[in-house]
Design a protein around this nucleic acid. Sequence first.
DNA 1: TAACTGTACTATATAAAGCAATACAGGTAA
DNA 2: TTACCTGTATTGCTTTATATAGTACAGTTA
Lengths: 123, 123
Amino acid sequence: MFELDYRSKKPLYEQIIEQIKLLVIKGHLSPGDAIPSVRKMAQTLDITPSTVAKAYQELERQKVIETIRAKGTFITTMPSVEPNVEELEKIRKRIQSEIIELKRTGHSEADVVNLVKEIYSSI
Amino acid sequence: MFELDYRSKKPLYEQIIEQIKLLVIKGHLSPGDAIPSVRKMAQTLDITPSTVAKAYQELERQKVIETIRAKGTFITTMPSVEPNVEELEKIRKRIQSEIIELKRTGHSEADVVNLVKEIYSSI
DNA sequence: TAACTGTACTATATAAAGCAATACAGGTAA
DNA sequence: TTACCTGTATTGCTTTATATAGTACAGTTA
């Protein structure tokens, strides 16, 4: 399904969250699709179920997936695309931190825009 | 000089690093300018000198400032604008994480580009 | 019934972050 | 010279986040 970078400083559960979102965005996972159980996913990734469970719980909080007790976990059928002003503000701050560093090291606005376009297209 | 967000999850020393960089970018600090000593800055921000020292050491590693022992700390006169492929790759990954979330929540490429332009201009 | 779901809970280990206190080496200015 | 200022280094401590491990529970499915 996907792989994790065990040497990365990025927490495993955050990597799982990002990878699931990527699969949804790319269309490899569609609304209603089931994703592996906590235990299976843990076994596949060779990590503990607790870490997978943490990722699933956060994904459910963000309405990316929904769980039906004792049945399984599924991609949300009604993807909530709420603006979510608070979350957007956090994203904005994190992006600003990166742009500060890019601007400091001599990257023009066009450079940054091109980088962003390139990233967006690759997703 | 600047303020910190003590409730933020972003480490204090990282906030200091970012704020100093911002002051340089905005021209409020110019090459050769002295910045407050570790102890003064700590007193102003009401934190321990260790945290300020940690920020200064990282800033020096990145060649944003240079320290002259027993004299003080100064903005670098020769700002090294090296490409630094490794660091750029890290920045790229972090930006990608943010763009994944933006794309997932329905933001178009134009939306993201506009957001980036807006942020870049505001710096 | 047996096997599977997600969830909850406790406990442990490790690392990062921040604080606190002290000491040291070196330059400045009275 | 002396007093005071610099940055640096070290040690110890607390808190939090991350990750692991194990157990138990409630509910569904075959």
